[in-house]
Design a protein around this nucleic acid. Structure first.
Lengths: 243, 243
DNA sequence: ATAAACTCCGTACGCCGTTCGGCTTGTCGA
DNA sequence: TCGACAAGCCGAACGGCGTACGGAGTTTAT
């Protein structure tokens, strides 16, 4: 599972699909079926339960069989990620101004990851770029057609926003998980932690925290910060248009 | 390793330290020594090699012994994370305007994670809040003393920036790792991937990508996006001050 | 003095990813 | 036509993991 494997075989599998063998018995399965089964496992049992043995069992096949379709587990993860990215709508096809479209893509991304929390871990495990991810980036760049930004400037904006979203997705999904966890006596983890911290933080030691009256939810923070970031981007676009 | 354990015992260990036993032989080790050994393993062998057995071996002790100091591996991870956060400078002690201080903290955070890439994985594994993390948040809030923002507004800004930094840290550290990986014939992974993609992306299929002349580095994107985000925050602060 | 509480840890359980070797199945070359 | 051989399938095994258990030794409270 560590990254000791040559990523080029994974890259070829992502872009070219499986090669056609010239001899031997027919395949019982397809790579797509394998990916679908893996997604089912992750969806139903969580990313920690995602193992080659479980995926194989779901397909009614021995664990070692998977290795005739996929070089290793991380390649399977890469396929899962690119498959899921392929289900997201392309940003440049949305209606409205560049800002409307960026906001729509950011919210859609957040929504998608909240619906499939296991994807967060896989996306952050440093996989090679697949065809769907590439197409998505191309689409995101086209959102800025007509704004006066150069291609490279548009890429900077796309990457800046994408990094923002990635970080906040992690926060929101973490919070979702914390909200789902409950203590044996039925309180949520968040309230339990707050209660604990209240007993440990003696008065005066954390003055700024004491001044808080109500914490914003991670989702509210996401929206506010996105607005600030896009305000700044808008200013940059206006400068380019005026200059 | 999955989150099936009660996080409250971890929380108590983080905040109260180990309890004092009333009977039995003296401890040979301390929790601090255990954390230090774990950090050494992560630092030298990477986060994938971080195992209870390896940490124990480094301390010259049986693996099961660790469980008299720490309830499980995730608690050890939480201690590692809070220890490392404790080494970061506190944002409100820096000189300059609020913006100077925010930029300094963001850059310092990026620098720290690049120096200790293993921390990225541990931080993103959803650990409870420790005393150092709490103190850091309090300090970050105090950066906005005197700006006219309410405490809750300051927290929104802190969280928005923190999420931004988290996402970009992941990108930069990923890129660092990719730059370190080289193909057998001595090329970097990035250039190898680019060469591969060039052969697979037929002309016209990715029009916006074709228009790119030179991609910004993740670090440049980090700086530009941070400036945009803080421009937006500055506008918000000015509105509060004027209104 | 004794019992209780505690540390240390060898051993073991049930997982994991992955490799190996043998069997079977289909195709290609002669 | 038919053997050689490539390829799929997979039971078994290897080395690793987190961690539970129970016994042996050690310290303290009573």
């Amino acid at each position: 599972m560590a990254d000791d494997h040559d990523p080029r075989t994974t890259l070829e599998l992502l872009w070219d699909g499986p090669g056609r063998p010239r001899r031997g018995p027919r395949h019982q399965l397809t790579v797509a079926a394998l990916v679908a089964a893996a997604v089912e496992v992750a969806e139903q049992e969580g990313v920690d339960a995602l193992s080659m043995r479980r995926v194989a069992a779901r397909l009614g096949v021995g664990a070692a069989t998977l290795y005739t379709y996929v070089p290793d587990k991380s390649a399977l993860a890469a396929l899962m990620v690119d498959t899921m990215i392929g289900e997201a709508p392309l940003p440049h096809t949305r209606p409205g101004t560049w800002r409307d479209r960026v906001e729509a893509w950011a919210r859609e991304e957040l929504r998608g990851y909240r619906a499939h929390p296991w994807l967060v871990r896989l996306v952050n495990s440093g996989q090679p770029v697949g065809p769907h991810a590439f197409a998505w980036t191309d689409s995101a760049l086209r959102v800025f057609d007509g704004t006066g930004l150069t291609g490279d400037e548009a890429l900077t904006v796309v990457e800046a926003v994408d990094g923002y979203v990635r970080g906040h997705v992690a926060k929101v999904v973490d919070a979702d998980r914390a909200a789902r966890w409950t203590t044996p006596d039925g309180r949520t983890w968040d309230s339990a932690q707050d209660a604990f911290l209240a007993t440990r933080a003696e008065p005066g030691r954390y003055p700024a925290v004491e001044r808080l009256t109500g914490a914003p939810t991670p989702e509210e923070v996401f929206e506010e910060g996105l607005a600030w970031l896009l305000d700044g981007v808008g200013q940059r676009i206006r400068e380019r248009a005026d200059g």
